[in-house]
Design a binder for these strands. Structure first.
Lengths: 333, 333
DNA sequence: TGCGTTTTTACTCGCGCTTTATAAAAATAT
DNA sequence: ATATTTTTATAAAGCGCGAGTAAAAACGCA
């Protein structure tokens, strides 16, 4: 690999001159600039970002910490962030935390150790205190889908209470009274907030929250099927099922069909997140739109503005979910 | 941030001694080792991987270049690779190439510039020649789902011709004779190989390949719906539809239903890849299993063996697809 | 032509760590 | 008790680059 030194030698100038043309600094004449550029091309020179980082203590890369590398939710998120950052010439370093406290912490450490200029994290297992503490460190931390009051300027979040409320209210408006709820793991803030919204909607219409119509799933397809099985085994009389995310809704749909339900007539189902495949399910799934791509762009914009000092950027911090009505929740007569 | 220097000072030893305990080198007594370790803990010392990389020209990180950050296919792939590498204490740096030649090249450059110890790439737009040339560089390149003869030892691939063959043969075996095919973009090698397999199966059963039953899609849901619309508009009389991947199959299913088809009776559909949600579609989708996670692990193993010199590893380079029969392809009477 | 300016270039140090070569200390042998 | 080996620690030289400072060259004007 050619180094800056060889370039300088070939172009007949000093090291720092080469460095200056690299960084597009002023104070270098067109003639020498051209000479240097030619030498670079000739040698196939490629600056070492490692050395660069060490010298300048800035890496032009931002760390992304997500729960999983797969799944439609995180896919959309990573994709939106990356795309937006790439336009500004910044790169991303992605690492998964698997919703596990230790792994999330080690993810942070890795990213910090790599000298990322900032970190955008979607973490669920670490405590607020840990995050607040971490924010005092040298690497700025931005939080996706999580609201921590003490560092709210670094948070991009969805109003999950509202989302949960909208979902259940939609069912009520369709005429349902016996509504079961499959929640996500309650240590996850969005899951517990969605549940709050559900309860709020019930209360508003004078329906009581019934423990026997409540099941905690895993946010995956299995959570949906397990939940519905649970309700069926307990002979719960339900006409509507609210799921805390789309994967669980799709699992429940499959289980329902396999057990003689005629969808959507026998059971109305609603999901949450509006992940891409919901529109390809049958019946198409009514759900709550979670503007993940938009939020990803917001997070990216936030670091562009704060860290890379781009001007003219304003970002929204709290996003609103909205109801997407499709075929899985017909009117009942 | 504490540096190695401060640790050495606090422990009362020299820089290099600290470095040696960091790297678990011999030639350091237990007593001094303990002293150093304590000093590190006290200072909350965290080695700078940047400086480390610069000095040792090894980064303990492998680059991953995929087409997209979202989508079930790449999600599974990244996830499998990352998980397997992490066990060995290696980290991944992921960047997308968007199936675009320029972007793929710039992805390679980024990863090489970051001094990755190796790169695992799923690229589709760059030429074989480019890859061969790249392989001569300092950073070893491994290819996922792509077979390039000259560097076959660095390739992990699926027998796509066989896969395409199995899919169409399955339809024929079910009794279909009028089989339409929605292909993927033909510059992508797997797409063109799957098509080859399709033609091979047709030929084997004396069916002629009919251009009017052929459509090139985009490997996304829209490709499936566009393709089926195309066939319908051209009044193609078909009883079976073979799609070159699952996303397109799901798009076609949705379109079919919206246009009065009674699935699976009126139209048998098969996909390709066996992506997770195929099992949650209705009817559940018959497809060809693409052992992506297994292949991801194989790629990870390959770099563990070649680059990090782990012993006792043998890896399979070419994987075989297999037919997964589900409800979307019933027997016809 | 000479002096002050402005533009352009060169030197040098340091970022935080690894890695020789080398010296000192401890252990063993003679 | 000295010579020899083995073990442990040190000092110094980079890795490739950025940035601040000093120096040189080019320019302007009287």
């Amino acid at each position: 690999m050619a180094t800056i030194y060889q370039v300088s030698e070939m172009a007949g100038v000093s090291l720092s001159t080469v460095s200056r043309v690299l960084n597009d600094n002023d104070y270098v004449s067109k003639k020498t600039k051209k000479k240097v550029l030619e030498a670079m091309k000739e040698l196939g020179y490629q600056p070492s970002s490692i050395a660069r980082s060490l010298a300048s203590s800035t890496t032009n890369s931002v760390g992304i910490l997500v729960s999983e590398l797969d799944g439609p939710f995180f896919g959309q998120m990573m994709s939106a962030i990356e795309e937006h950052l790439r336009i500004a010439g910044k790169h991303v370093i992605i690492t998964p935390g698997h919703s596990d406290e230790k792994k999330e912490k080690s993810g942070f450490e890795f990213l910090i150790g790599r000298n990322c200029d900032a970190i955008i994290a979607h973490v669920e297992a670490v405590s607020n205190e840990y995050l607040i503490e971490l924010s005092k460190g040298k690497t700025p931390i931005y939080l996706m889908s999580r609201y921590v009051k003490e560092i709210e300027d670094n948070c991009i979040s969805l109003d999950n209470v509202m989302g949960g409320y909208l979902a259940t209210k939609a069912m009520i408006n369709k005429g349902h009274k016996n509504i079961a709820y499959i929640a996500g793991p309650q240590f996850k803030e969005d899951a517990s907030n969605r549940l709050k919204g559900h309860k709020k909607a019930l209360a508003e219409y004078n329906l009581t929250f019934d423990e026997s119509l409540y099941y905690v799933g895993d946010f995956k397809e299995t959570g949906g099927s397990d939940g519905l099985r649970h309700f069926i085994q307990n002979k719960a009389q339900i006409t509507a099922l609210v799921c805390a995310n789309d994967e669980m809704a799709s699992g429940a749909m499959k289980y329902a069909r396999e057990h003689g339900f005629n969808l959507p007539k026998d059971l109305a189902i609603i999901g949450f997140d509006n992940v891409i495949f919901t529109n390809y399910l049958y019946p198409t799934l009514t759900t709550i739109d979670n503007p993940v791509p938009e939020m990803g762009r917001a997070a990216a914009n936030l670091v562009l503005k704060d860290i890379y000092k781009k001007s003219g950027i304003t970002v929204k911090h709290v996003f609103q979910p909205k109801l997407i009505l499709r075929d899985s929740t017909p009117d009942i007569n």
